[in-house]
C-alpha cells in the first residue's frame, strides 16, 4: 500500500498556523491540485507524472484531510482557499494555476475569487459549486443524500467511525462509471486516511460550512472571474452541467463532458484528464 510516487517528495508546508501536507515534483510553471471527499492528494497520482513533465506539481492534502492539520474550525472554502494560497506563498510561488476536484473544486473557485492576482488558470473537475443557481435544487438529487448527512453535527462521525472502508468503498463505487479506476489498495489508502484521528470530523466540516460557502458564492459571482477557466465533468455525473455552471462565475469557460466517466475524473480517465489539463495550462 505504498503512496510513493517516483520523482515526488513529501513535505509539510505551513499555511499560517495550519500545516499542510504537500507532494511536490516536476518543473515548470506551478500547478496546485486540490482533492475532494473522501480522498487525499492520492487521487491525482495517475495524472501527476504526466503533468510534472511540464509543470511544478504541488498536490496538497486539504485542511482536515490526509496528513494535513485538522483544526476545530475554518472549513469554509474561503478559509481553505487562504490555506492553499499561504502554502503556495511559503513555497515561493506568487502566481500559479489551480485544479480542484469535488470539494477541492469549491476551494479552487474560492481561491480564484479571493486571490485573483495570484491565479493564472482555474480548472474545475466534476462538482456543484456553492453559489450556483442550482445549488439548492441539487440537494434533492438522491445521489447527494450525503450532503445533509454530513452536515448533521456529531452523529455521522459516530456512524462512520470504524467503518471507513465500508463507507469509502461504497461512496466511490456508487459514483463511478469506470470501476476499473480503483485498485483495492487505492480504496484502502483513502479509507485509512479517513480513519486517521480527526479526519472524519475534518471532512464533514467541509459540508457543514456549505451555508456560508453558498452565501459567499452568491456574492462573488456578481464580479465574474476573467481568467481562463476549464470545467470538466464526468459524462455520468455533472458532465454537461459543468460549463453552464461555471459560466455563472466566469466570463471565459471551456471544457465539457468526459465520455465514459463518472465522478472520479482523474482516476477514471487519467490520460484524457492530464491531456486536457496540459493543453489548458499551455493556452
Amino acid at each position: 500500500m505504498s503512496t510513493k510516487l517516483e520523482g515526488f517528495e513529501h513535505r509539510m508546508v505551513m499555511a499560517g498556523e495550519v500545516g499542510l501536507h504537500a507532494v511536490i515534483g516536476g518543473s515548470g510553471s506551478p500547478v496546485v491540485l486540490l482533492h475532494g471527499f473522501p480522498q487525499t492528494w492520492w487521487e491525482w497520482h495517475k495524472v501527476m507524472p504526466e503533468l510534472s513533465k511540464h509543470h511544478t506539481v504541488i498536490a496538497l492534502d486539504l485542511r482536515g484531510a490526509g496528513h494535513s492539520d485538522k483544526p476545530q474550525a475554518g472549513y469554509d472554502k474561503a478559509s481553505m482557499a487562504a490555506d492553499v494560497h499561504a502554502a503556495m506563498r511559503s513555497l515561493g510561488f506568487a502566481r500559479y494555476a489551480v485544479c480542484g476536484h469535488d470539494i477541492g473544486a469549491m476551494v479552487a473557485l474560492a481561491l480564484a475569487f479571493q486571490h485573483r492576482e495570484a491565479l493564472t488558470r482555474l480548472a474545475i473537475l466534476d462538482a456543484p459549486m456553492p453559489g450556483w443557481s442550482q445549488w439548492e435544487a441539487n440537494f434533492a438529487d438522491p445521489k447527494v443524500w450525503h450532503f445533509a448527512f454530513h452536515m448533521r453535527r456529531d452523529l455521522p462521525e459516530l456512524l462512520i467511525q470504524g467503518r471507513e472502508l465500508t463507507y469509502v468503498s461504497t461512496f466511490l463505487s456508487d459514483r463511478a462509471f469506470n470501476h476499473g479506476a480503483f485498485e483495492h489498495h487505492d480504496i484502502e489508502i483513502f479509507a485509512r486516511a479517513l480513519a486517521q484521528v480527526g479526519n472524519t470530523r475534518g471532512a464533514l466540516e467541509w459540508y457543514r460550512a456549505f451555508p456560508l460557502d453558498h452565501a459567499n458564492g452568491l456574492a462573488w459571482k456578481k464580479a465574474p472571474l476573467t481568467i481562463p477557466v476549464m470545467a470538466l465533468g464526468g459524462e455520468h455525473r455533472y458532465g454537461e452541467k459543468m460549463i453552464p455552471m461555471l459560466k455563472e462565475f466566469a466570463s471565459s469557460v471551456v471544457g465539457g463532458s468526459i465520455a465514459g466517466c463518472g465522478h472520479w475524473v482523474p482516476e477514471e480517465r487519467p490520460a484524457e484528464t492530464a491531456k486536457r489539463l496540459l493543453s489548458f495550462f499551455e493556452t
Binding site: 445549488w135 439548492e136 435544487a137 440537494f139 434533492a140 438522491p142 443524500w145 450532503f147 448527512f149 452536515m151
Partner: peptide, 15 residues
C-alpha cells in the same frame, strides 16, 4: 427539503 431546513434522515434512510 434539506436546502430549507429539512431533515437529513430522509436521504440517509433512502440511500
Amino acid at each position: 427539503d434539506v436546502a430549507r431546513g429539512g431533515s437529513w434522515h430522509f436521504g440517509f434512510n433512502m440511500a
